[in-house]
Design a protein around this nucleic acid. Structure first.
Lengths: 193, 193
DNA sequence: CGTACTTTGGAACGAATGTTCTGTAATTGC
DNA sequence: GCAATTACAGAACATTCGTTCCAAAGTACG
């Protein structure tokens, strides 16, 4: 019965995500979102609620689309050590390659909003926890495969890797040069020995 | 001849710094600054210029007052290895202790503004470079003292430590619990072996 | 004392903010 | 083809934003 939507919800979320990712929450205006998504103001509010609600939708979208992809190798590569190494080296490469240095939306948002917004804090915390677990799984694989010495504190090492991975995103967004980022990553990986 | 100022420039910068530190640049309004510093709008603009100019003054103030203090031990403790260890452990402690998790203003600002503001990017870059050099000096002391093995790539290790130190600030601001932060720091320090 | 000079308090500015309202367009079931 | 329902387009809303202006207030030298 009703008039059908003239927009694709997923592509709207994609566009909105890119703006929030690039500019941050506060610096992104509704006008920016309207301009970039092509979506009308009224339709935006009707479909997603207010700015904050849209932002939370975007965070979720980011998790499923971007984060999932960034950690795909870490999950899927059977060789646990190789998985960890590829994850970091890819991050260092894309972190300096992409024209705009945007870092990671989850890290950015955690920094900008978490201290004053419990909702975002919870989401960012949960994302970090998931990364930590994924690293822990890869570490356990690597230890089982004899690629990493036994007797290490896996939980602590996983926290170290997850934290350091955030550090890569941070340095990338701040505009660190490739040499610095490479040095940083290789030293992290050397800590596995 | 003129009417004397009714405010102390340093304490105004202190107050302004704390607001920017806590809320970030975009989320801090002039009204916030007026309320918190007690300074009048007109006096603010007359003394510091616009919001951005005040912010840059605040960044400088932060460097001299807070950053300098955070790296004082790293510079002054003769034992290079002990200096590095104390720097990280102190950061982990204060990072979870202070009621509000504010992280490091320089890191926060680098994340929020550097991608779109060359001035802030340059300042943050320079600050990172200074931290890197300070870590390198401590590493060289430690190597000379036999506390760290020779033959390491000091520059890469210094970049690792400087990057990881930013990581501590990041995790602290995001509200990481003390256990996670401790694991993270101790694993970083273990990488010196 | 008065004049030169600067700070101070607070009103005022236009522009931009997030949000809502009003009317018009488009589609499906009857 | 009419009625019901939803989406669209864009004007309109009050509020807040960063910034400027103006008159009153305070001090030091003549």
């Amino acid at each position: 019965m009703p008039r059908p939507r003239a927009f694709d919800e997923e592509s709207v979320l994609d566009n909105a995500m890119n703006i929030f990712w690039s500019k941050g929450f506060e610096a992104t205006s509704i006008q920016d979102l309207v301009n970039e998504t092509g979506l009308n103001r009224a339709s935006m509010y009707a479909s997603f609620g207010d700015k904050k609600a849209l932002f939370l939708r975007v965070l979720d979208h980011y998790s499923q689309k971007i984060s999932a992809e960034r950690f795909a190798d870490l999950r899927n590569i059977e060789d646990g050590r190789a998985a960890i190494e590829k994850t970091f080296r890819d991050a260092a490469k894309t972190g300096t390659a992409e024209g705009r240095h945007k870092g990671c939306l989850m890290v950015n948002s955690g920094m900008e909003l978490a201290p004053h917004d419990p909702e975002t804090a919870a989401i960012a915390h949960q994302a970090f926890r998931r990364a930590e677990d994924t690293f822990a799984a890869a570490l356990n694989r690597a230890i089982g495969q004899g690629k990493i010495a036994k007797g290490k504190n896996v939980r602590a090492l996983a926290r170290f890797l997850a934290g350091s991975f955030q550090g890569v995103q941070l340095m990338s967004r701040r505009g660190a040069d490739q040499e610095t980022l490479t040095d940083y990553c290789e030293t992290i990986l050397a800590a596995l020995d």
